[in-house]
């Protein structure tokens, strides 16, 4: 069994290689990196590949910036489950005297952020968060429910040397909203598709039941419940550890959690259920570099054909 120290050494070593090859660019903050053109090309091509699999399902495309309304975050109950991960956006809202005090604090190396006030925006915790209030506003769903395609940078406050655990990363999602049967068959379909898609990229994959990193004691109960009910599955790929492989795709059944919160109704006035498939774009890209090397030109022909057809 690898120790935590060995694991973080392996993560650090892979991060160093990525930096050395110029694929990631250091910013001085763990989990916050620039990306090279080569890295971005792989992300973009993988994004197109996802659309080749899911694009025929008729999902409505919605693109949001990596921030959402603070009010919506408060209403979403995200802070009940993951207060430790949420990122809020603060700004200076003072007068001239406050401004001088701020500059003086910076000059003297003191905490200058005490006077910063919360803005109406917060960082997006998961790409799908802005769609629920959007759909709720439209009124009851059509008989065949709804499907949405979202893609956004997301923020989670969990600084780490693991390049596969970034604080700002991209998540592509297809979200299904409708009856329990509709959303469950969507998730089943993507469990199959996800394995086929990733298998075509020449990386080893494994599906396992999982839980979200819920906070605190209450969170332990939520995590156990989530596992017992098989609400979350992950597609795992070993990147820096065989024993602790990285979740690169996830398949989530939220039951009526978002439907109840946002009052989303089906066409026959039932509470809507929701499910989603999420793709960790950087994680998949990091897995591809891990298995096929840092020189994209030398990647296996079959993999290149998938990404650059």
């Amino acid at each position: 069994m690898a120790s935590t120290q060995e694991l973080s050494q392996a993560q650090r070593a892979y991060l160093d290689e990525l930096l050395k090859h110029g694929l990631l660019i250091e910013t001085g903050v763990d989990g916050l990196y620039g990306r090279s053109g080569v890295f971005e090309d792989v992300v973009d091509r993988f994004n197109v590949l996802i659309s080749r699999y899911g694009g025929g399902d008729g999902a409505e495309v919605m693109r949001f910036p990596p921030a959402i309304s603070r009010k919506h975050l408060e209403e979403s109950e995200y802070l009940k489950s993951f207060p430790q991960l949420a990122g809020t956006l603060h700004s200076f809202m003072g007068n001239d005297a406050d401004h001088l005090a701020l500059l003086k604090a910076i000059e003297e190396g003191r905490d200058w952020t005490l006077g910063q006030k919360a803005t109406d925006a917060v960082m997006t915790p998961a790409a799908c968060y802005p769609i629920y209030p959007t759909l709720a506003k439209r009124g009851p769903l059509k008989p065949d429910g709804a499907m949405v395609d979202v893609y956004s940078y997301c923020f989670r406050h969990e600084p780490s040397v693991d390049p596969a655990r970034m604080q700002l990363f991209r998540m592509r999602e297809y979200v299904r909203i409708g009856s329990p049967q509709q959303v469950m068959s969507f998730r089943e379909m993507w469990l199959e598709r996800g394995q086929k898609l990733m298998g075509s990229l020449g990386v080893p994959v494994k599906i396992d039941v999982a839980n979200d990193p819920f906070f605190g004691r209450a969170g332990r109960m939520l995590a156990v419940n989530q596992r017992d009910q098989g609400l979350k599955f992950e597609l795992l790929i070993p990147i820096t550890s065989e024993e602790k492989p990285t979740a690169c795709l996830s398949f989530n059944y939220h039951q009526d959690h978002f439907g109840l919160l946002w009052k989303i109704a089906t066409h026959d006035a039932q509470v809507a259920h929701t499910a989603c498939v999420g793709f960790g774009m950087e994680r998949v890209t990091l897995a591809l570099f891990k298995y096929h090397g840092f020189d994209v030109e030398k990647w296996p022909a079959a993999v290149k054909k998938q990404l650059w057809p």
Binding site: E77, K80, S81, A218, M221, L222, N225, Q226, D256, H257, L260
Partner: peptide
């Protein structure tokens, strides 16, 4: 709900 059961607990 799951969240309500935690509050109950």
């Amino acid at each position: 709900t799951s969240h309500a059961s935690v509050n109950l607990m």
